[in-house]
């Protein structure tokens, strides 16, 4: 796995530029992820990679195409100091795990990490360090465990007319 580090205020136009929003398919979108700012991203990213970012990751548009592109690219978790609200909801709702943790300065792009969601620990194997994070609220964990909002609604039969 590889870590992709980003600074503060990474907007959804950077994650997936508007000119590629003619599909909702995660794999097709992944081919253009960060196309303008990191042209090599889509070629080099691999299944299981992790994004580590600063504050307000995913600000801007409500396009769900942004977390879909990351999921389609193989990104398995985004760790940031904070997330823009709609990006946060979209990610949880489509089953892309997010961790809000201020560990930006502790992790290098070359580090190997392991994430234990159950006990809220990011383990830095390279530096032999552990970082605690606050697990998501229970309701959002349930959404993620279901694989997103749609599966959750199916499982709970939420809002069914009767």
């Amino acid at each position: 796995m590889r870590i992709w580090k980003f600074g503060d205020n990474v907007d959804t136009d950077q994650i997936i530029p508007a000119e590629y929003l003619t599909t909702g398919d995660a794999k097709e979108l992944a081919a253009h992820a960060f196309a303008k700012v990191i042209p090599e991203f889509s070629k080099e990213v691999q299944e299981g990679d992790v994004v580590v970012a600063g504050a307000n990751f995913g600000c801007g548009s409500s396009r769900e195409h942004a977390p879909r592109a990351l999921l389609g690219a193989g990104i398995r978790c985004v760790i940031a100091k904070s997330f823009a609200r709609i990006f946060f909801r979209n990610s949880i709702n489509i089953g892309l795990p997010l961790i809000e943790a201020d560990i930006f300065d502790r992790i290098e792009e070359t580090d190997q990490i392991e994430i234990r969601f159950d006990d809220g620990v990011i383990r830095n194997l390279t530096k032999n360090e552990d970082y605690q994070f606050k697990p998501l609220p229970e309701f959002m964990q349930k959404l993620l465990e279901s694989g997103g909002l749609i599966n959750y609604i199916k499982e709970t039969k939420m809002g069914i007319k009767n």
Partner: peptide, 18 residues
Amino acid sequence: TGVGSTEAAAAMATGRLW
């Protein structure tokens, strides 16, 4: 407020959102 496509879809079916 702005939402994603999945949330819009859920609300189309249920009329509700969290």
